[in-house]
Every structure is written in structure tokens, then in C-alpha cells.
Nucleic acid binder design. Structure first.
Length: 901
DNA sequence: CAGTGAGCGAGCTTCCGCTTGACTT
């Protein structure tokens, strides 16, 4: 018998197992072990038909969640259950944060330890032997309120995601998604692009000078910039706003600026030819910089991006390998705290590598800057009580470089401040026209590098200087004479705000308390996968689709998509965790509303208010709109002759960033609306050019009518066969396609039979009687005799009837009818003649058994007969959601039992 | 965004946060 300890991570289990010895068995949960069902396939049949089944949250009954053990966790749970049976005590040692507390409760509820088995909650914040031993000695109970807070978080995210996403499916495009985190992330990227689109460049000029403070033999040159004219500051980039205007053009006061044009700057330069200069002021300030805090997830992702060019996801997977192999501590953390052992190890290395003069008298500590930090772990640092230098690890490649980064940052965090001086010198003189002109030079010298010797953070913004950048200025005193060696007018332009990169977006999200260390990298993945955002180099560019989605959310779900939403949710969760607020009440307010707050349910029910077309239309200017269509973005504007001619449309290339779609660019696109058409050749008979292009119904060929063709003339068109592509279609094929329908021949009674392609594929037509063909090639090949043979058969109703079964499985145990597998319009399905059930994701024709088929049919049967009656004109007769048959509200799944004690 | 005639099995997409392998080539 041993004591069973369950932590979250297998690597952690190994380490802790070593500390605890043979009286303990240490296992891991491998993250969450239960969750709301992910999709329909994982939703148990007994809740599927409930009105709230899709959510798996009983919104009518205290928002009770319905949890399942995901398929891939089942065997692991079985293993843990077995271990519990053999244990004489159970320690739930999951992380000490909201999610960890919930995992502990789920474990307890799912493993169902036998009565009498001592169960403890054990917590620690660092994986060091003393910390673990202390944790075992000081267990506590599960904090029910904290679990409630986690469930509130989980349920809110489910309601948000699974209620708002379907709105997007209906109004924008199928398969899209919305969520508390991803929608705000997308909005940030869109908002930044909007700023760039509004941005108007300002140009301004100044003078660059090189002064000499020395003599002819001993020049001491230094650079300076024009600062003021007659005591009025010269405008710089920061003095302009995004519209290109000076922020303040007041005639007096500190904000007054003079905006120099090129002519102004050149005139000024030529008026300074004979000027003598003297030093007006010298201002020296001490420079002091403290080391950066040790890495947490976001800062590691940022620096790995800047210094090593790694994406967030690459950084995390490299770090994961370092962690699993015992090189670093846990990499998903929001804490910058180092254990005492780590501080000691870092200080030892400082002394060894840099000497005692770089070591502060007492250890440095770093308070968390992250507001909602849960601090379940240490900072990311080299593992162990003594640090291995990168060379000692034997690592190579990305792992080596990332380890080195983490190691340097950790060591540097225990070093002394860098100190030095920053100096500003003002130099003045009189121009020929009598104006008083002042230049400014700034310098920085570092007298003691301290931590900068080990580690300097890189910068994103090119206009900023690295912390170790130095500019030396000569030692000057007020009144000293200097001469101008060079003087040149320089033009500058203001720059639009830069786009987010992965790293800067993650930083922004963290600053706004949105997302968690374990999700930052995947948030980026989500908005990329949905097509909301794409990468151009390292920049994240929003697609027009994102503009459409974000606008819909802003106008119809303003509260949910506000930047403050998560922060206020966190406040509420804190109240729930403190036992001061109630989960169901808060969720009720979110879902059903209260007072001034309109609930989510109301918002998603009143869909009529949402004008999908309006949401997808963005005016560009000059009467041109950008529209987000099902096939991508396109521009729509008045035709070349303007007026009331029908509008012209043109596709917008997928990789054209929204801020580059100017009116001029839109007009350019509209001038050539053909888009990506391919010239196939000229028709041998008509001489007209034939082009192939993509249309609403897929690729097709069409002929180009001459400009003088009458307005009523319509070009012939023809869809490409599935076997053809735009790039490879030949002239011969194109001609045949344009000549369709092909006349196959004439029936006995004199009716013409034609062959052509249609909405449902290839078919024959004789008067009003049509018959489907099995392949497109038959349109060209079929003979009159074959066609007659088809018409000799009775008309087949539906395709299914025409296709032979793919497999016969035997008789259904319920209906006794033979069960066969067929291929249908919606994919493969099984049928017993009366009921049809589509195969699920995991089923294949090869693998399906009679048992599985019977299961699917039984499920199908439960939902009642297909709406057979519906015939013509009954296109929409949605069987009224059998609302009457509400089985007496079943009590929510057994839960929380474990928590009462 | 080209305009082309039927009739007929729906079912699924999606959230955020915790964690690793198991898959394929």
C-alpha cells in the first residue's frame, strides 16, 4: 500500500516522485480529465434532445453543466481508478489555481475513492524538495468556492462561444467562431488596421548637424538636431496625430510648435552659413536601469520572437521539450517569482561568471505585474538547485538557444543595476536673418554595465533605443564655443501605427487580462485558422472577413466584445471564489440579462435585427463598396460609364492588406473586373476570344464579345467539368463546352434529345423530361441509342435509388429489415428501408458493423419519423421542436456530492 | 460574380483552459 499523489503533468510527477520516495506513488492527471462535451458525437444521447443539449449546460436549471470524460482520457482514468483502489491515501496535488482546484474536484468526483480513504488537497508553488515535503505535511481541503468560480468561467465561455458562433454561421459564413478571447483578439487586430486606414501621413523637416567641440588637429565631432527657432520648438513626429495634423498649433504655451517645410529647412540652412555657436546648456542626469524580471510565458514568447525569430507555438513546443527533459521549470506560468534555491543558484553563477562586484548585497525579488496572475508556478528558469551553463547541457539547435536565453535572463535578474549618465546639450546661434536657432544633442554613457553585461532585451519599436545603447558626447560646459562641421536639411514622414505581431498581440492580451499562459499561442492559431487574420512576414493582417465579423459583434454584442469584458468577468469570478457571489445568479445575469443588461440569450434570439448585407459592406469612397462575399472579398462600384449602368464587381486579392485598398486601388481592380481570368484562345468559327474564369458556380469558360456588340447580346458560357481546371483547359474543350447543350439526336416522335451540364450535374433533356447522367464525359460521348435506352427506363426518383448499396450488413435487430450502407448526397449512410442514419465522423464503410449500424438507426428512430408529409411548397415546415413532450426535468447529473462534507 | 431540371436520408460547424502523446509521411 502506498499513498497516491496526483499532479497535472507527467514530468512533474517524475520529479516529485523522486523527492517523496517509495511510500508514495506519484501520477498525473495530464491536465483536465473531464469537460463539457466537445461536439455532438461526444454528447450523450440522454441530453442530446434537451433544448440545452447542444450547450451541455442546463440553462433552465441553475446552469448545471454536464461533464463527460473525453474519449482519449478514458483509459487513463481507468488506470487512476485502479491506483486509487490500491492506495491508502489520496493526495490531490494539482496546481494551486482556479483550474487546478477544479481538476482536483473532478478527480475526486470521477475516481470516487472508497469511503474511509483519506483524501487531501496538497499544494505547492515550486518543485523543490523542501517545498514538496512541506506540502505533504500541510494538506488542506478542496476549496469549493474556487471550483465554483472555475465552473462559472467554463460555462460562461461555453455559452458565449456556442451561442454567438451560430449567429456568425447564419449571418456571415458557416464554420466561423466567436469567443470571449478570440473575438477580442481579432478586434484588436482589426482596430489597429482601422487606425492605419485612417492614418494620414505628415511630412516635416529639420536640420541634422555635426558639431565640432575640438580644434583643427583634434576634432571632437558629435551629432545634433535642430531643436527650436526663436524659442519655439520644431515639430517632430510625436507632435503630429494620425490625421497628419499638428497635435497643438496654439500660438502660445509649451505646446507651440513650428512646422518646417522643405523650403523652410533649406532657407534656414543657408542662413546658418556664417553662424557661430556656443553651448547654451548642459544637463546631466544619472542613468540607472534595473534588470528585467525572470521570464514568464508571455515575456519568453516575446523575446524568443525578437531574438530567435520563433513563433509563439514553436517557442512553447521547444520549451516543452526542455521541461520534459529536466532543463527548465514549467513553461506555462504567469509568475516571475524564483524559489530560494533558484535565487541562490543564480547568485552563485553571477559570482562565478561576472565576479562579486556584479552581485547585489541582497537577492532581488520581482512582484507580479500581471493583474490576474494566479501564480501556481515559479518563473521560467533553469531547473535544479544549481544551474547548468548552456555549454554544460549538451543541448543543440533551438533547444540550446532557448535554454541559453532563459539561463541568461535568470542570471541577469540577480545582478546589479546598470548605471551611467545621460546628457543633453543645447547649442545656439543666430541665423543671418536674426532668428535664434538652437540645436540639441543627447548622449548616454554607461559607467557600470551590471546586468546589461549578461542580458539586454530587444526592442520592437525601431524608434526606441536598446538599454545598452551608448552615445558619447564631448565634455562641454555652458558658454563653450563650438563650430558646425556639417548642416543638412532632413525630411521625415510620420508612420502609421505598426501592425501587431504574434508577440505584441500576446503582450496586449496579457495587459488586458485576456487569455492564460496555456492558451496564448493557440489563440494566435485560432484566429489564423478561422481566416480572420493572416501573416505577412511577422505582421498579423486582418482579412476583410474579420472586419465583417468584428463589426457584427461590435454592433450587436457590444458588451461581450468590449475590451473590458474579461476584466470584469475576472472580478465577478473573484467574488464567487470568495463566496460573496453566487455562480448561478451571475450566469443568469449574463445569459438572461437583468436591469439594463441585455442577456446573451435575447441578443442571439433577435437575429432579425442583424442585416447581414450591411455588416459585410464597407464604403471605400467614390461610390465604391467593399463587400465580403461567400467567395471572398470583392469591390463593387458604378460601371465605367457611371450613372445607372449595372454595377461592376472585381475580386480583391486575398493578400491585399485592407489599408492598401485605397480608392485608386479599388478603381484599378474595377477597371479589370475579369480578375484572374485565363485566355484560352480564339474560337475557330467565331474568332471570339475565349477566357476561363471563376464564377459563382465554379470555374467556367466564356467568350469575350467585341465592344461594338449590341447590348442585348449575351456571351455563351459553360462550366468546366470536374476533371478540368482553369489553368489546363484546352481550346478544344472550351469550344465543346460553349457549344452545349449538345444535340444527341431525335427520338422516334421527333423530339430532340440534348445533353448538358446543370445544377445537379450532367443530364439529358427531352422536352420537359430530364434524366441524370452518371458522368460529365457522357455529355460529349453518349450516343442516341444509349440515350434512348435511358429514356426507356422509368424515371428514377432521386440519386439514391440509382446507386447500388455499398455494403450489406444483415438484418436490423429492431425492424428485422436488411440494413445496407449507401452513398448519398450528404455522405454515406445506413438504412433499414424506413430510417436513414448518416455515418458519423469515426465510422467508415469498411469498418462499420451491424451493431454500430443498429446503434445509429436506433438513435435516428428515437428522433421520430422523417417529415415525410412535406412535399411541394413545404420547403420550410420545421417540425415544431416537440416542445410538449418535456420529460419531468431530470435532476442534473450527480455532482458536488463530493464537495459536501 | 455565369443562369441550368429533379427530388430527396441530414448533421455538423463552435468556446476556453489544463495537459501529452498517438497518429501519419
Amino acid at each position: 500500500m502506498a499513498k497516491l499523489v496526483i499532479v497535472e503533468s507527467p514530468a512533474k510527477a517524475r520529479t516529485i516522485g523522486g523527492y517523496l520516495g517509495s511510500d508514495y506513488v506519484v501520477e498525473s492527471s495530464i491536465g483536465h480529465i473531464r469537460d463539457l462535451p466537445n461536439n455532438a458525437a461526444d454528447t450523450p444521447a440522454k441530453i442530446k434532445d434537451k433544448p440545452w443539449g447542444r450547450l451541455a449546460v442546463d440553462v433552465d436549471n441553475g446552469f448545471e453543466p454536464y461533464y463527460v470524460v473525453p474519449r482519449d482520457k478514458k483509459s487513463h482514468i481507468a488506470k487512476l481508478k485502479k491506483l486509487v483502489k490500491d492506495a491508502d491515501a489520496l493526495y490531490l496535488a494539482t496546481d494551486e489555481d482556479r483550474e487546478g482546484e477544479a481538476i482536483a474536484w473532478h478527480l475526486l468526483d470521477e475516481l470516487k475513492p472508497p469511503k474511509g480513504l483519506p483524501v487531501h488537497r496538497m499544494v505547492f508553488h515550486e518543485i523543490t524538495k523542501p517545498a514538496i515535503l512541506a506540502a505533504v505535511e500541510n494538506p488542506r481541503e478542496i476549496n469549493d468556492d474556487l471550483v465554483e468560480a472555475q465552473e462559472a468561467r467554463r460555462i460562461l465561455d461555453r455559452l458565449y462561444g456556442y451561442e454567438v458562433s451560430p449567429v456568425l454561421w447564419k449571418k456571415v459564413m458557416s464554420g466561423l467562431s466567436a469567443g470571449r478571447v478570440q473575438s477580442v483578439a481579432t478586434r484588436l487586430v482589426v482596430d489597429r488596421e482601422r487606425e492605419r486606414m485612417k492614418f494620414r501621413v505628415a511630412s516635416y523637416w529639420d536640420l541634422d548637424a555635426t558639431f565640432d567641440a575640438g580644434t583643427g588637429h583634434d576634432p571632437r565631432m558629435f551629432p545634433a538636431k535642430l531643436y527650436s527657432i526663436d524659442d519655439v520648438r520644431v515639430a517632430r513626429g510625436a507632435d503630429f496625430d494620425n490625421t497628419g495634423e499638428l497635435v497643438s498649433t496654439g500660438s502660445t504655451g509649451a505646446k507651440r510648435r513650428v512646422h518646417l517645410s522643405r523650403a523652410d529647412a533649406e532657407a534656414l540652412a543657408s542662413g546658418l552659413g556664417d553662424t557661430t555657436y556656443d553651448v547654451r546648456s548642459v544637463e546631466s542626469k544619472p542613468y540607472r536601469r534595473s534588470p528585467y524580471a525572470p521570464f514568464r510565458t508571455t515575456t519568453l514568447q516575446q523575446e524568443a520572437s525578437r531574438k530567435l525569430g520563433m513563433s509563439a507555438s514553436v517557442t512553447m513546443s521547444v520549451a516543452q521539450r526542455l521541461y520534459e527533459n529536466g532543463f527548465i521549470t514549467y513553461m506555462r506560468t504567469d509568475s516571475t517569482t524564483l524559489s530560494d534555491a533558484a535565487v541562490g543558484a543564480a547568485r552563485d553563477q553571477v559570482r562565478e561568471l561576472y565576479g562579486a562586484e556584479y552581485l547585489p548585497d541582497s537577492p532581488r525579488t520581482y512582484a507580479s505585474k500581471v493583474k490576474n496572475a494566479q501564480e501556481a508556478h515559479e518563473a521560467i528558469r533553469p531547473a535544479g538547485d544549481t544551474f547548468r551553463t548552456p555549454a554544460q547541457t549538451g543541448l543543440s539547435g533551438e533547444q540550446f538557444r532557448l535554454y541559453e536565453l532563459i539561463w541568461m535572463r535568470t542570471v541577469a535578474s540577480q545582478m546589479k543595476d546598470a548605471v551611467g549618465n545621460s546628457v543633453t546639450i543645447r547649442i545656439g546661434g543666430a541665423a543671418a536673418d536674426g532668428r535664434d536657432v538652437v540645436f540639441s544633442a543627447s548622449g548616454r554613457t554607461i559607467t557600470f554595465h551590471g546586468f546589461l553585461k549578461a542580458y539586454v532585451e530587444d526592442i520592437d519599436d525601431a524608434s526606441k533605443r536598446r538599454d545598452d545603447a551608448e552615445t558619447r558626447l564631448p565634455n562641454l560646459t555652458q558658454g563653450a564655443a563650438v563650430s558646425a562641421a556639417t548642416l543638412s536639411p532632413e525630411g521625415h514622414e510620420t508612420k502609421p501605427p505598426s501592425r501587431y505581431t504574434e508577440a505584441t498581440l500576446i503582450k496586449e492580451l496579457e495587459d488586458r487580462e485576456i487569455g492564460r499562459p496555456s492558451t496564448y499561442a493557440s489563440i494566435i492559431g485560432t484566429i489564423l485558422n478561422r481566416g480572420y487574420v493572416y501573416k505577412k512576414g511577422t505582421a498579423l493582417v486582418p482579412a476583410w472577413l474579420a472586419f465583417s465579423v468584428v463589426r457584427l459583434l461590435e454592433e450587436h454584442f457590444p458588451r461581450q466584445v468590449s475590451y473590458e469584458f474579461t476584466a470584469s468577468m475576472e472580478d465577478v469570478l473573484d467574488e464567487i471564489a470568495g463566496g460573496r457571489k453566487d455562480r448561478a445568479t451571475e450566469l443568469g445575469e449574463f445569459y438572461y440579462g437583468s436591469g439594463d443588461v441585455v442577456g446573451l440569450k435575447t441578443l442571439v434570439t433577435d437575429l432579425g435585427e442583424i442585416d447581414a448585407k450591411e455588416m459585410a459592406t464597407f464604403p471605400i469612397g467614390d461610390g465604391i463598396d467593399l463587400r465580403v462575399g461567400r467567395y471572398g472579398p470583392y469591390v463593387e462600384g458604378p460601371g465605367p460609364d457611371g450613372g445607372d449602368a449595372s454595377p461592376v464587381r472585381a475580386n480583391v486579392p486575398d493578400d491585399l492588406p485592407p489599408d492598401e485598398l485605397t480608392v485608386a486601388k479599388a478603381k484599378e481592380l474595377l477597371a479589370n473586373p475579369a480578375g484572374e481570368e485565363q485566355v484560352v484562345g480564339n474560337h475557330p468559327d467565331t474568332g471570339l476570344q475565349i477566357v476561363a474564369k471563376n464564377g459563382r458556380f465554379g470555374p467556367y469558360v466564356t467568350e469575350v464579345l467585341p465592344d461594338d456588340a449590341p447590348k442585348s447580346a449575351k456571351p455563351r458560357t459553360g462550366s468546366l467539368f470536374k476533371s478540368m481546371t482553369l489553368d489546363t483547359v484546352t481550346l478544344e474543350q472550351a469550344v465543346k463546352l460553349l457549344d452545349l447543350p449538345r444535340i444527341v439526336g431525335t427520338d422516334e416522335d421527333g423530339t430532340e434529345i440534348t445533353a448538358q451540364n446543370g445544377r445537379y450535374g450532367p443530364y439529358l433533356k427531352k422536352g420537359t423530361d430530364s434524366r441524370s447522367l452518371t458522368s460529365e464525359d457522357q455529355i460529349f460521348d453518349i450516343t442516341l441509342d444509349q440515350a434512348k435506352a435511358i429514356y426507356a427506363q422509368p424515371k428514377q426518383r432521386g440519386r439514391g435509388a440509382a446507386t447500388p448499396p455499398l455494403k450489406e450488413l444483415g438484418n436490423d435487430p429492431v425492424s428485422g429489415q436488411p440494413v445496407i450502407v449507401k452513398a448519398g448526397r450528404f455522405g454515406e449512410y445506413v438504412t433499414d428501408g424506413e430510417y436513414n442514419a448518416t455515418l458519423r465522423k469515426d465510422d467508415t464503410v469498411e469498418s462499420i458493423t451491424l451493431e454500430r449500424a443498429a446503434e445509429l438507426l436506433a438513435e435516428r428512430r428515437e428522433r421520430g419519423p422523417a417529415k415525410k408529409a412535406a412535399k411541394k411548397g413545404a420547403k420550410k415546415a420545421p417540425a415544431k421542436k416537440a416542445a410538449a413532450k418535456k420529460t419531468a426535468a431530470k435532476k442534473a447529473p450527480a455532482k458536488k456530492t463530493a464537495k459536501k462534507a
